[in-house]
Amino acid sequence: MPPTASTTEPPPEPDVVMRQTLPSPVTASVRLVDEPWGTRIDVLCSYAVPDGPPTPEFAYALHVVAADGATVLVATWTAGPGSTTRPTATTRLSRSDITGVEIRLVQNDLVLLRVEF
């Protein structure tokens, strides 16, 4: 019997840990996945329970940084202490046109986490 061609996709690139730009209880990793129409961005984001008084939920935003330096908002979500979220976003930008990913605190647009490619 002749061998058959495999139709499975190659495994995705490993998650890349984002670095903190400001102290916060938020940690995250990101994976960029090539798609025929652009790029899918998979994020795993965890929120530690900080010491001290209870903290409220906050709104977060995911931005991609394009090769020309422009930033593009691709997702938003709300989360609070002790939670883990898995936001997934898409962009028409190709993987090679993305030079970074940022997670920002929506209320004041502060960059909490960043990774550069």
Rank of each mutant, 00 (worst) to 15 (best):
A70K: 14
A67W: 02
V33K: 11
L112P: 12
A79S: 15
V65H: 00
T99P: 02
V74S: 03
L73P: 11
Q107R: 15
I103C: 00
P81K: 12
V26A: 08
S6M: 06
P14W: 02
G82R: 07
S46V: 04
L44N: 13
V43M: 15
S94K: 13
S24R: 12
G100K: 05
A59Y: 02
S46Q: 15
I103E: 00
P3Q: 09
S6N: 05
Q107T: 12
A28S: 14
V74T: 06
A59C: 04
P81M: 10
P56W: 03
T21Q: 13
A75S: 08
A59F: 03
P36M: 11
W77K: 08
L62P: 00
P53Q: 09
W37M: 15
A48S: 15
P56C: 08
L110P: 00
R86L: 13
N108G: 09
T55Q: 15
W77I: 14
R31E: 09
P50S: 10
S83L: 13
P81C: 15
T71A: 07
T90S: 14
N108A: 10
D34F: 05
V33E: 10
V106Y: 00
S96C: 01
P3E: 06
E13W: 00
T4S: 06
T21H: 04
S6G: 06
M1T: 11
F58P: 01
V101I: 11
